[in-house]
């Protein structure tokens, strides 16, 4: 099957990507995640037309999606087990991984929009907001797939709702920090091209809470 056909099957949840408990199509999902993530990352890093930044961002977007999932997976397993949902774990994983691949596919589909945005404006802040919007849309697409996989599970046992919400909460918590660590994704024009920022190993939540605190304290 061609890559486009594989992506189509994923988005429609058909064939080997259908909802259920069959064997997880690892190779197809990984391929879509890596290529989709790389495609969007390359577009995202093309701000200021720096090929090296494009390459770095192309590597970082799939890393962001994959590492966030890997870090949260042990907890997902334990939570499902504690909830008594272990028998459905493969189906839940199928939904979660399909959702991740869907995010990547949706992002790569949005790459032309990002490229157009870059071409039409030199405003760096707009580039940041635009990419934030693209990730939001990509996440909504991922949620669509996740919902599709979880609907029969929740119908069978409402406790799946808890498992899904715990996954989403922890995933978002980890992904925000990982995105902070992996920045820059766009690459400000006044900064050198680099894989990590010098102050990469800091904490997004601490920075934000200090910012809020300083705003409140005046």
């Amino acid at each position: 099957m061609s890559l486009a056909g594989t992506a189509d099957a994923l988005l429609r949840a058909e064939g080997r990507f259908s909802v259920g408990r069959g064997r997880l199509p690892w190779r197809g999902l990984a391929t879509l995640l890596v290529l989709g993530g790389f495609g969007y990352g390359a577009a995202m890093g093309s701000w200021g037309t720096r090929p090296l930044q494009s390459l770095y961002s192309g590597v970082k977007v799939p890393l962001l999606l994959a590492i966030s999932s890997a870090v949260c997976l042990p907890n997902f397993f334990v939570v499902n087990s504690i909830l008594g949902l272990r028998d459905d774990f493969s189906a839940a994983c199928r939904g979660v991984f399909a959702a991740q691949a869907t995010v990547a596919v949706a992002l790569v589909a949005l790459a032309p929009v990002t490229a157009t945005l870059y071409a039409s404006s030199g405003d760096y802040d707009l580039a940041i907001v635009g990419n934030g919007a693209m990730f939001l849309i990509g996440t909504i697409a991922g949620q669509w797939t996740l919902q599709r996989h979880y609907r029969p599970l929740v119908a069978r046992d409402p406790r799946h709702r808890i498992g899904r919400n715990v996954w989403l909460t922890l995933y978002v918590f980890v992904a925000i920090q990982l995105a902070w660590v992996l920045r820059p994704f766009i690459g400000a024009s006044n900064q050198p091209t680099q894989f990590f920022r010098d102050e990469a190993w800091s904490n997004a939540y601490v920075v934000v809470s200090k910012l809020i605190w300083s705003l409140l304290a005046g």
């Binding site: 870090v71 042990p74 907890n75 922890l170 902070w180 190993w201 800091s202 904490n203 939540y205 601490v206």
Partner: peptide
């Protein structure tokens, strides 16, 4: 043991934040 199993499953998250932050209070 259930308590510790859940805690152990959060271990990778703790490890990840340990690698990515120097903030002791966090």
């Amino acid at each position: 043991s259930v308590n510790l199993a859940l805690l152990a499953s959060l271990g990778p998250v703790t490890g990840f934040f340990t690698l990515s932050t120097e903030s002791y209070p966090f």
